[in-house]
Amino acid sequence: MGEFFEKIDLNKVLRYLVFMFLCLMAQNMVFGHIRPFGVRPMLLPAVAAAVGMFEGATWGPLFSLLMGYFADMSFVEHRVFFLLLLPALSLFSAFMSQFFINRRFFAFMGVAFLAELITALMQMLKTLAGDAWSTDMLVVVALQTALSMPPAALAYFLPERWSRE
């Protein structure tokens, strides 16, 4: 047990905790009030993808699990949605970066796009389970994914820099 804690870089853990806190604050306080075309951007799936890509298939999903737990608190319609989805996205990102893609910015943006699209589709399916179908739902999915890409680009740089240390 002692060996496990010896392997942990506490400095890095603290940095990621602060990073998680800032991302959650940005999602709730900043993006919660910005609504271009009536749709709010989502930052958290891209953050989960970024951390999974650079920290691997263990620490990435662990980070995303903790972030998902706090995210579900502020999204009142969800109970365990982000708690399950964000670690899965992080694991997917880690898997892709391990075997199929490099860790450059362009590759990350592709993975972030998929993460955002999957999140929007899952939210739409959850809504569809309790409501009638409407083509407006696809519009919201498209807008949410598109508008989430500029903030998703910001999620790349800090994990990339910390992974090189």
Binding site: N28, G32, R40, S74, F75, V76, E77, Q123, M124
Partner: peptide
């Protein structure tokens, strides 16, 4: 005190 950040629900605290 808080508005929901989701695009798929309309709720506040």
């Amino acid at each position: 005190v808080l508005w929901s950040s989701s695009n798929w629900s309309s709720a506040f605290t």
